[in-house]
């Protein structure tokens, strides 16, 4: 099923059997998203580990 990323509004394809609590990744902005509800489908930003990226 298709939905949009709440962070960047990119198109997001989810498996038909996606489950509540599942973590999916947005292919556009790379954010981790948690499926918080199925009816209706709702996604929320999942906590991401802070990385010491860069310098």
């Amino acid at each position: 099923m298709m939905t949009t990323c709440p962070e960047c509004e990119g198109a997001l394809a989810l498996a038909d059997d996606v489950q509540t609590g599942e973590i999916v990744v947005c292919g556009d902005c790379g954010v981790d998203l948690e499926v918080i509800d199925l009816a209706p489908l709702a996604l929320a930003l999942a906590p991401q580990e802070a990385e010491d990226w860069g310098e």
Binding site: E9, G10, D28, C29, G30, V31, D32, Q48, E51
Partner: peptide
């Protein structure tokens, strides 16, 4: 995001690179 997608969504040689991880 909307502005960059509108400009480059259909461009064959321009990619939006903005990743959180």
């Amino acid at each position: 995001w909307r502005a960059y997608r509108a400009a480059y969504g259909n461009e064959p040689f321009v990619r939006i690179v903005k990743d959180r991880g």
